[in-house]
């Protein structure tokens, strides 16, 4: 055939086919996605501090391990309340003349997804400690330590944000560990990752491949199947601050082991703190606790399982709460005031 003896025709045909398919599979869909997705009504542009934080997020290559996409599959439910949609990324535009739009979606999940981290972990104290050395809050973590985002000073100025790093992670640092502007900006940027509600009437995509709920087998007691694993729920929601041994971190997160609130016969205060957060011990140097239960959409069954885990672990010998009493208190607490 002539085409195989004529380089102009052969290579012309090949590049023509390739460009045509490129247009179909990449350029036109990209243009379409860029031009037809506006930001959600509730979304706000990043503040200047958050923009600076995004710069550090890009600089340090966080995307290598952290995705930002809640996929529409059931297993991703732990990362957000709804699957991500194109509009969630609409505010992500070209960084500057030198640098392209930041890649946020990522392709590896060596670390947790960050799509909703602003709701899942809103505690600034936790993030700063975690950045200084991730293993100070999550013992098994393999994330790099970003100690160059912190200064060491002999004395802290009043406006300085001091990070109370546990002794074993100070690595001989004797002065005060101060978060730099960069660290604070990065945390501010991370805290801005919040999944927003879709406007009324717009249906949220479904989570696919859900687990089938198996009906309880006849003849077996229902208790076995309905009681949730408190230890797993504690690990997913509470452990990063209060630690697996319930002892918290000195100067950062209070211990639950032997805590009078946890051991209190009346579960109301404990439940209120889980659902609405707590800042009662900030004066002692402890961080502010976010409203974990509300942020993570915990159900009464899950909260009860967590509370019972806390009440009966690490030598704690508190009274076990029942699901009925938590269900009763649940709505009351939700609409009530924050615990003091």
């Amino acid at each position: 055939m002539d085409i195989y003896n004529n380089h102009k025709r052969l290579f012309g045909a090949a590049i023509f086919l390739f460009i045509g398919l490129t247009m179909f599979a990449a350029v036109f869909p990209a243009l379409d996605s860029q031009n037809n997705n506006a930001p959600l009504p509730e979304s706000k542009p990043l503040t200047s501090e958050e923009v600076a934080g995004k710069g550090i997020f890009i600089r340090e290559g966080c995307i290598a391990c952290h995705t930002q996409q809640v996929r529409n599959v059931d297993m991703d439910k732990m990362w957000g309340t709804r699957p991500s949609i194109a509009a969630d990324y609409a505010r992500n535009v070209r960084t500057d003349v030198w640098r392209n739009t930041a890649n946020l979606m990522g392709s590896e999940r060596t670390g947790p997804d960050l799509m909703n981290i602003g709701n899942r972990q809103p505690s600034e104290d936790w993030h700063l400690l975690h950045l200084y050395n991730p293993r100070s809050v999550v013992a098994q973590s393999i994330m790099p330590a970003y100690s160059w985002l912190f200064d060491v000073k002999e004395y802290a100025f009043p406006e300085d944000v001091v990070v109370n790093v546990p002794d074993e992670f100070r690595q001989g640092v004797t002065g005060k560990i101060i978060a730099t502007k960069g660290a604070l900006a990065l945390v501010a940027y991370l805290k801005s990752f919040k999944q927003l509600k879709l406007p009324d009437g717009k249906p949220s995509p479904l989570f696919l491949y859900g687990k089938e709920v198996k009906p309880a087998l006849a003849g077996t007691t229902s208790k076995l199947n309905t009681e949730l694993d408190g230890a797993v729920l504690y690990a997913a929601n509470c452990q990063s601050c209060h630690q697996e041994n319930g002892e918290g971190l000195k100067g950062a997160f209070p211990a639950l082991k032997g805590s009078p609130i946890v051991l209190d016969k009346d579960p109301k205060v404990q439940l209120t703190i889980i659902m609405k957060g707590y800042n009662g011990r900030a004066s002692e140097g402890f961080g502010v606790m976010p409203a974990v239960g509300t942020n993570n959409n915990l159900k009464p069954e899950e909260v009860a399982a967590i509370m019972n885990h806390e009440r009966t672990s690490w030598g704690n010998n508190g009274r076990k709460v029942t699901l009925t009493e938590i269900k009763e208190l649940f709505n009351q607490v939700k609409s009530g005031p924050v615990a003091k």
Binding site: A26, P29, N100, A102
Partner: peptide, 29 residues
Amino acid sequence: VSAVMFTIVIALVGYLPFWQNGLGESIAQ
């Protein structure tokens, strides 16, 4: 020759800024 030709096209699609905002970036990526 096709590999070299195509790679020039690929670099252009990946680096030209006109379709890179929002999710366009991920599709191009």
